[in-house]
């Protein structure tokens, strides 16, 4: 019965794995709910700051801020790439990295240099190995990140943009559509572009800036970029949990399939042994 015991051991070990993946699925499901709530909580802020920025693009200030200006030629581009800290979440991170790489390749083929800031352990591990300029990182954000944890990374990029080191800034993250669908997304953060023409604001007007337009716009656009990055991080966490939930569900299902198959093999082996024993006994009795 040594074969039978081997199979039983194998079944037991797969059952343990299945318990783990099932537990991870449950945990991911409950974390996903919380992550979704957080995602919805910042939406009003995101909407409003977006409105303000779009108004601003249509204003006619006497001083054109660097954030709103198109640079004549692009020499260097910056990326902020958001990933999860942990793995076991399906192809989420790798799919994102693939499109980022493609994007980077397009840029570097046309002679541009690349600066990268990463958020999340996986992105940091991945981009460290590549021949790109890795200028900043934030890792171990946990499940409920706070805006101030992102300020550092974002400031590096904004400063680089302000000083003219990079000429545009992109953000790559996973967008949460629903539990089954996560869309990897690359958006251009800087320079800020108007999205649609706005009739109401097309006449000649401008804000009153207090104390002066430069300080106010500095202030506002830093917050804008931060809030977009923060939203990216929060969405990415929701995606991570959703993707992990799906991945773990299919892992549990696969474990179940393997257990069924093994059980069948085990039963057949057991039956074969019994049949053999009976035929031996019958053969022995016949010989006597």
């Amino acid at each position: 019965m040594s074969r039978g015991k081997e199979i039983r051991n194998q079944i037991a070990s797969i059952k343990n794995t299945q318990k783990i993946t099932h537990a991870m699925e449950m945990v991911a499901a409950s974390k996903m709910r919380k992550a979704q709530e957080r995602m919805l909580a910042i939406r009003p802020y995101q909407d409003k700051i977006h409105h303000v920025i779009q108004h601003l693009v249509f204003a006619h200030p006497e001083y054109i801020h660097v954030y709103l200006q198109d640079r004549a030629e692009e020499r260097r581009v910056g990326y902020v790439v958001i990933s999860s800290d942990r793995g076991l979440c399906g192809g989420l991170n790798n799919n994102l990295f693939r499109i980022v790489l493609k994007h980077i390749k397009d840029k570097s083929d046309s002679g541009l240099e690349i600066d990268i800031c990463t958020i999340g352990q996986k992105a940091s591990n991945f981009f460290v190995r590549l021949p790109v300029n890795h200028i900043g990182q934030t890792v171990q954000l946990g499940d409920s990140p706070h805006v101030h944890e992102l300020i550092g990374t974002v400031k590096i990029m904004i400063d680089a943009y302000k000083e003219g080191i990079i000429d545009s800034l992109y953000l790559a993250y996973n967008q949460f559509v629903n539990t089954m669908i996560q869309k990897n997304n690359i958006v251009k953060l800087l320079p800020v572009k108007p999205e649609e023409s706005n009739e109401e604001l097309s006449h000649h007007w401008d804000y009153i800036y207090e104390p002066n337009s430069k300080d106010v716009l500095d202030n506002l656009l830093v917050r804008y970029v931060e809030s977009v990055v923060y939203q990216g991080v929060v969405e990415n966490i929701a995606c991570e949990q959703a993707s992990r939930m799906v991945a773990m569900k299919s892992a549990s299902d696969n474990a179940g399939d393997i257990i069924d198959d093994l059980q069948l093999v085990h039963n057949k082996a057991r039956q074969a042994v019994i049949t053999q024993e009976i035929s031996e006994i019958v053969g022995g009795a016949a010989a006597v």
Binding site: T118, V128, Q137, V147, I151, G152, T153, I156
Partner: peptide, 29 residues
């Protein structure tokens, strides 16, 4: 529209955070 801050901010704190993120990356490298 009033966009309220949640993070307490100060110029030097921002600076320190930026420095830290930079050092982190260098250290790992």
């Amino acid at each position: 529209t009033i966009l309220a801050d949640t993070a307490m901010r100060a110029a030097d704190l921002d600076e320190a955070a930026a420095l830290k993120a930079k050092l982190d990356a260098e250290h790992v490298l």
